[in-house]
Nucleic acid binder design. Structure first.
Lengths: 249, 249
DNA sequence: TATCATTGTGTTACTACGACACAATAACCC
DNA sequence: GGGTTATTGTGTCGTAGTAACACAATGATA
């Protein structure tokens, strides 16, 4: 679909005043990264987003948006909140291409946005901008710039949800390569939680979850003692995703 | 607003294809109750719901719906999920009053629904049906009938979310009267979790949270030993709602 | 006044968690 | 090739939290 067609006829294809925003996270260089897009019109950054086709479910729409930005299919995707403040799209007029946006276009509507976050394997992603943007890059979670609308708040809420889930559900299968070391897993947790953890206690806790399998192989090439390689036991991992890692009562 | 006006002109006031469904829960007779409405046209039961005015936020709309059904203001309200499967409104034609619903009405749209749950003090509620329903009653959570659309699934999701939150956040301030006994609080937890708990361990755990205050008064009138009365320390309760009761890492 | 269900208040064993110490090792450098 | 260095593997110990369990106190009832 071309930009013109999208602006003029999008409302025939998509549900009005409803959008989806995705917080796509990856892990690289011991840092948590988030995928951002750069708006054509004014150079500001935003989260990848899109709209819901009239015949699609929200989950389907989110999966499509993700596929279009990353090239990945079958991604771990989690709805976390729906944002519906009428004032959430601050300075919206700046983003509606004063030159090309017809005054009656559906893009001028107030939008309610459903937030999803995705955890992806960094190395597998091919970032791809969309119709409204000309750049698509990974950005370190600690140096995210001012984003358009309420996108900074959306990102924060996604992180908060992820941190919450960390207490009850495993994380890592979708963010790390198939085989990884315990220090790598620890640094993933440390960046998500934004705090440092005790190496020895962390290992004990992770192993106690019973979802890891130690391989008879060590990761060589580093400058120091070679750490063991681990992988997730996929069946137990999936089970933990459904049942949770612990019961409170 | 009258029914005719609502059906014919609602789309001028409300956002199209967007609704809100509320799971309103109360506690009475040692049982968790949920507020249900009975559809005028075919007698089926459903969750209280409503629509979002073009100028309102989702939270505002949910609060208004709640006020209209319960008479209560300043209610504890929590968004938990947005339901957007295009097939979620099964047998919708049954509910659209074949006699009175104009074919082009906005009510025929596919609706995406934002789910909220509310915890209210049972005795304070005056159930009130809406334009589309003629009855509004409390129903025991264990004997909920078949509801319209995907409302049973929405209710289940609300309960699941509430059970999750129970591990990290306090519950009770909004469901119990101002002064209550430890056995009452325990039965609240037991009905929500649908499991029985050890009396002594439950008390220790609750007191350890540090949000309860024991009064120098006992609840008399029961057939047996008079239990102490407690109340929540409102400041500490609010703090626990924000920070959570425990940190996982 | 005896009965009885229910409440208040422990104890004990076990597990989980945080703080901490020391030996092993892979690359590096002289 | 052997010492250096940063990092990894594995443990201990004290504390806090949890689950299972026992007995005395009490308030209405009979």
């Amino acid at each position: 679909m071309e930009l013109n067609e999208f602006v003029e006829k999008g409302h025939e294809v998509y549900l009005r005043h409803l959008s989806i925003d995705c917080v796509i996270m990856g892990f690289h260089d011991d840092q948590l990264k988030v995928l951002l897009l750069k708006w054509k019109e004014n150079g500001q950054w935003c989260l990848p987003g899109g709209f819901v086709r009239k015949e699609d479910s929200l989950d389907t729409a989110a999966a499509r948006i993700l596929r279009e930005r990353t090239g990945l299919q079958d991604i771990y995707l989690q709805q976390f909140h729906t944002f519906g403040d009428p004032a959430r799209e601050r300075h919206k007029e700046q983003f509606l291409w004063p030159r090309s946006m017809p005054p009656g276009s559906w893009m001028h509507d107030r939008f309610i946005s459903v937030g999803y976050y995705a955890l992806v394997e960094f190395s597998q992603v091919t970032p791809q901008p969309d119709l409204l943007t000309d750049e698509c890059h990974w950005c370190d979670i600690h140096t995210v710039p001012d984003l358009i609308y309420d996108h900074n708040a959306i990102l924060e809420k996604a992180l908060e949800t992820l941190r919450m889930r960390l207490n009850d559900y495993p994380v890592g299968l979708n963010l790390l390569p198939a085989r990884f070391t315990m220090p790598e897993l620890q640094r993933l947790y440390e960046t998500i939680l934004d705090m440092s953890l005790d190496r020895r206690n962390f290992q004990k806790k992770m192993l106690a979850f019973g979802i890891l399998e130690r391989l008879n192989e060590r990761k060589t090439g580093g400058a120091h003692k070679a750490p063991y390689l681990y992988r997730f036991d996929r069946r137990k991992y999936e089970k933990a995703l459904k049942q949770g890692l612990k019961f409170g009562f």
